[in-house]
Design a protein around this nucleic acid. Structure first.
Length: 270
DNA sequence: CTAAATACCTGATGGC
DNA sequence: TGCCATCAGGTATTTA
């Protein structure tokens, strides 16, 4: 259930154990994830991880032979442990990093994926069409304004589209729209340039503040060391239906947009 | 091309 | 305690 801050938190947690280290072998207990885990991975021996990066919600581990692309889906997590046999239900893939260090991929719903490509990862079909990183200078209000003209989709749905901008998931979409005073159901094409400037700024702020807090833990998100995040304490609308708006005191509302639960304050957002 | 619906899967929760 | 319906942090793919 990770969004960008949770993926970033995970990446930072596993990086010391993975970057410039060697993957001795990969053990696949359950290959049926979103897509089957490539057989090539099970056969690999001694892959040095020369770069470890995040692209959107994808984690990319580069090696001289190719790249491993990991997505955590809705319920995925990665953790480091020192014992090879202490595996839990839904621990699907285990990377042996040598010297009793193991990276374990855990994912009850199996919406996540682990892929292997010998092409540069950026050229992979899943990554090649992604929009800009929200925390980069390539992402701004002007881009949102330009991409949204004549679009009728709800602005919340629009900013959650990874081809427009990556990494804005269901929690942070509601939160950044609240901070910007924009109703989530408003047609993307009817949001003004000024409002998009604010929205882009607020997306950046909300995501970076969440990263500072170690991400949001609603039910079960934990970092690579098994610790929760604390950003949920800062949430203004997500999951707060029926409660008082922290800004105006009116009741926070919930409705469904694009099949996803959406939260907003009808007074503060128009 | 756009927009909406569907698909994948397990587990937690609440009503009866 | 059990059973059923509903919901959950994602997103590629199919359908209209």
């Amino acid at each position: 259930m990770p969004e960008l801050p949770e993926v970033e938190t995970t990446l930072r947690g596993i990086s010391p154990y993975l970057l410039n280290k060697h993957i001795k072998s990969v053990r696949v207990r359950q290959r049926q994830l979103r897509w089957p885990v490539p057989a090539a991975l099970s056969k690999t021996r001694d892959l040095k991880v020369t770069a470890l990066q995040r692209r959107g919600k994808y984690i990319v581990a580069q090696t001289p032979a190719g790249s491993i692309i990991i997505h955590l889906g809705m319920s995925g997590s990665l953790r480091i442990q020192d014992k090879p046999f202490e595996l839990r239900k839904h621990d699907h893939v285990i990377f042996d990093l040598g010297e009793n260090v193991f990276l374990v991929y855990h994912d009850p719903r199996r919406f996540g994926s682990i892929l292997w490509t010998t092409e540069p990862a950026a050229l992979h079909p899943l990554l090649s069409k992604l929009g800009p990183e929200p925390l980069s200078d390539d992402f701004n209000g002007a881009l949102l304004f330009k991409q949204s003209r004549k679009k009728k989709v709800a602005v919340k749905h629009f900013i959650m589209n990874s081809h427009i901008v990556v990494g804005v998931g269901n929690i942070y979409a509601s939160e950044s729209l609240f901070h910007s005073g924009i109703r989530p159901g408003k047609a993307a094409g009817r949001v003004t340039a000024t409002a998009y400037d604010q929205l882009a700024d607020n997306i950046k702020t909300v995501l970076s503040e969440s990263i500072k807090s170690g991400g949001t833990t609603l039910q079960d998100f934990v970092n690579a060391k098994g610790e929760p995040g604390y950003f949920q304490q800062t949430l203004n609308v997500y999951g707060r239906e029926g409660k008082a708006c922290r800004q105006c005191g009116n009741t926070i509302k919930q409705r469904t947009i694009g099949q996803r639960s959406t939260f907003y304050c009808a007074t503060c957002q128009s």
